[in-house]
């Protein structure tokens, strides 16, 4: 396998550079996916039936913590990639680990929120608004969950093999994914929570 040393490590081989490009294309599809979910949400946002509306349901506190965790984790995964490019394996693993822990924290709060909603009688079955809310948030949450498992797998590989073209490529692609989830969350935070609270 030829490694082109003039490029960053994760782009080193032809295959790896293709993988990164391919992942960008995939993120294009992900944008279409979330755009559709947002559209569904906006169409159904005022259809409460007998259930609660957003302003009755949402609390800003936990959502701010979620936002803080995810935004910070997007920063730490960036630091991890930076460390990777300097071949600092330990630093990279630490930042990677912090990222995943924050992701886990985010998930914990999101699940607690869901449980609270359900206890308040706001379930998936209650109204079209709540169905679209749970599915939009749930799809994002499922992405974070998958990201956590994927990231954990990459960390194990990093620990076993160190920073090489394969693990560097995977880590970089993972960082793209994680940033993307962060961007989606910013939209959720603004257009679901803040707008809903207004």
């Amino acid at each position: 396998m030829k490694v082109d040393t003039s490029k960053p490590l994760e782009y080193g081989t032809h295959e790896n550079s293709n993988r990164i490009f391919g992942f960008w294309v995939f993120l294009g599809a992900e944008i279409a996916l979330f755009a559709t979910l947002f559209t569904v949400f906006f169409v159904l946002v005022n259809r409460f039936a007998d259930g609660p509306s957003g302003s009755e349901l949402f609390e800003i506190g936990p959502v701010l913590i979620e936002t803080f965790l995810l935004l910070t984790s997007s920063f730490t995964i960036g630091l991890a990639v930076h460390a990777m490019r300097h071949q600092y394996k330990r630093a990279m693993l630490v930042f990677f680990g912090i990222t995943l822990l924050m992701g886990l924290g985010f998930l914990g709060i999101e699940i607690t929120e869901f449980v609270t909603y359900v206890h308040e009688g706001a379930t998936l079955q209650t109204s079209a608004f709540l169905s679209s809310l749970f599915v939009l948030l749930g799809t994002h949450g499922a992405h974070v969950t998958f990201g956590f498992l994927w990231g954990a797998a990459i960390m194990i590989q990093l620990m076993r093999e160190g920073i090489n073209p394969a693990t560097a490529n995977k880590s970089f692609i993972f960082s793209l994914y994680w940033h993307f989830l962060d961007v989606v969350w910013i939209f959720i935070f603004s257009f679901v929570y803040l707008k809903g609270l207004m």
Binding site: L37, V40, L44, A49, T126
Partner: peptide
């Protein structure tokens, strides 16, 4: 997305395309 919503409606009782509850 459409198929997922259909599955949620049919398997988990969500209200995307239903006749009641704002679908």
């Amino acid at each position: 997305v459409a198929l997922a919503l259909m599955m949620f409606d049919r398997l988990f009782g969500s209200q995307f395309f239903t006749m009641a509850n704002g679908g």
